[in-house]
Simulated scan of single mutants.
Amino acid sequence: MDKLRLLEIFLATCDGGSFAAAARSCGTDPSTVSKAISRLETQLKLTLFQRSTRHLRVTEAGQRYAVTVRKMMRDLASCEHELMHLNDLPGGTLRISSAVCYGHLYLRPLLHAFCQRYPAIKLELEVNDLHVDIIESEIDIALRTGYVKDSRLVARRLSPMDFLTCVSPNYLAAYGTPTCADDFKRHSWIGFRIKQTQQLQPIFLPDEKGEYRLFELVPRHITDDGEAMAYMCADGLGFAQLPHFLAKSGLRSGTLVSLYPYYRPPEPENGVFAIYPKRDYLPAKVKVFIEFLISSLASLGENANHTWAENLTPAVNFPAKLPPELTLCLDASV
């Protein structure tokens, strides 16, 4: 029998004045109550009740102990009530970790509206591309581009991650538009170096059938910052294959154009995910934040299976037949 149960029986015995009354109150039998009180007295090395054949009287030590136990039980009940209330109503501090580019371009513009809707929630926002242990770091929810395989976590996809082959109109005016894959060898590319692995992000381009293939193109310029990559592309330094959330602003303003239809890496690893610890009762602050994100993304034309890039009209049709030396494989993935 655990200590909390012993204390409940102890208080019921104080209140009922007998083992029989305590047994009725606790849903057990007098023998169990008697053994529980004896066990508690042995643990404390105190006599809590004076027993006789007719009466049961609480000792002075028992009375003092009962005062402390009652206060403890009230505090525990109050704490449990507050925690259950907190779990039902969105409030408290919400700790968010976001990938850098997604955090700046998609998340940050939504935060003001979220805080207006849920004023009892305070935000702590960490923006970095490191895949930290969110449980150890006490993160409530992380937004990551890429799937995380961890049985302790829930990974809910917010949207796919679609890639667009972008370039500045000024670059095209100066150097011409590629008409076949061989042309790309004569053009400047901006490569992206993945910080976690220090490897370059692969480049996928469509063949004459519209099927995307992995290509070996040596970039002229390299960066490990997504926003810098998009700006370098808009500034006319060359072609770049950008995630849809990085390309959106430049395409809207006209500083970028997309040559071909979007490329979507294989599922289920591909996408933007909301990642949070697996638990039986999801705190309300996390629940409403996820719902808010999903609703906000829907207004941008995105959901778990679609992005606005699907409806984008490319500036150029598929290129002509690819030279064999550029084609590596059909089944490679990002």
Rank of each mutant, 00 (worst) to 15 (best):
D331Y: 15
R51I: 02
S52N: 04
A228W: 15
S249N: 13
F292V: 10
E60N: 14
I190L: 13
G271I: 01
L328Q: 08
I134R: 05
A61Y: 08
Y262N: 04
T307A: 02
N317L: 07
S38W: 02
F19C: 00
L89W: 11
F318R: 11
R108A: 11
T179G: 06
Y212L: 04
C14M: 08
V58A: 01
K71V: 14
G62F: 00
L86A: 14
Y263I: 01
L123Y: 07
T28V: 12
R152P: 03
A332G: 04
R252I: 09
E41V: 02
K248Y: 08
V218K: 11
R193C: 13
A240R: 04
P243A: 08
E60C: 13
M229G: 13
N170T: 13
Y147P: 01
G27Y: 07
A99L: 04
S18R: 00
A36S: 03
V288P: 00
N270V: 05
V334G: 11
K248H: 10
Q198T: 06
L6G: 01
Y175P: 02
P265C: 05
V100G: 12
L125A: 09
E302N: 12
Y263V: 00
E126N: 15
T28R: 01
L297C: 05
R108L: 08
V69T: 03
Y281A: 08
G210N: 06
D162W: 03
Y175N: 06
G176R: 06
M72L: 11
V167F: 07
K285R: 13
L300S: 14
H112P: 00
V67I: 14
T53N: 07
R144L: 10
M161H: 09
S34G: 07
I134N: 08
Y260F: 10
C180K: 10
F292C: 09
K71L: 13
I139T: 14
D235G: 14
D182A: 15
D29W: 05
E269A: 11
S34C: 06
E325C: 15
H55L: 10
V286A: 03
L172N: 04
E8N: 03
K185R: 15
E126R: 15
R252N: 11
V100I: 12
F49A: 00
L164C: 00
D15T: 00
I275A: 07
S78Y: 15
L251D: 01
P119W: 02
Q50W: 05
H112A: 14
